[in-house]
């Protein structure tokens, strides 16, 4: 985990350079005492509170990848590469672009808005 960031202006926290986080990767930062994972989802930066709603695991330490899409019995269709975060403890899958669990839309990881200025990524919190 990196050192706490200094605010450049209220509610907008610089957390990393865009080049620091490659597509598919995550950097875990601390913002206002919250552990937050900043993901590069195919070029879009997504910030997620590092707490799983299930048993409070550090969800952002889980693998990011694709998943199996809805399909008829016995068929497999793969997709959404780089968009799905799986909790490291129990494997619950979350949609990084929307925040919801893939099995229950009411179960969500907490997402924060991000902004990119020049090559700096900000988390709005």
């Amino acid at each position: 985990m990196t050192e706490p960031s200094k605010p450049s202006k209220a509610g907008r926290w610089p957390v990393a350079r865009t080049a620091d986080i490659a597509p598919g990767e995550c950097r875990i930062v601390e913002v206002k005492r919250h552990s937050v994972g900043v993901f590069n989802v195919n070029g879009e930066f997504v910030a997620v509170l590092n707490v799983c709603p299930h048993e409070l695991a550090p969800v952002c330490r889980g693998p990011v990848g694709g998943t199996t899409l809805p399909s008829p019995p016995g068929e497999y269709r793969w997709g959404r590469d780089g968009e799905i975060l799986s909790c490291p403890w129990h494997g619950w899958e979350f949609d990084l672009l929307a925040g919801n669990s893939l099995t229950d839309p009411r179960v969500r990881v907490r997402r924060y808005p991000t902004e990119v200025d020049d090559d700096t990524i900000f988390v709005v919190l």
């Binding site: 695991a57 330490r61 693998p63 799986s86 490291p88 403890w89 494997g91």
Partner: peptide, 10 residues
């Protein structure tokens, strides 16, 4: 076991 046998952060 698609969730991985061991917790990934263990």
């Amino acid at each position: 076991n698609a969730a991985g046998f061991h917790q990934a952060d263990a």
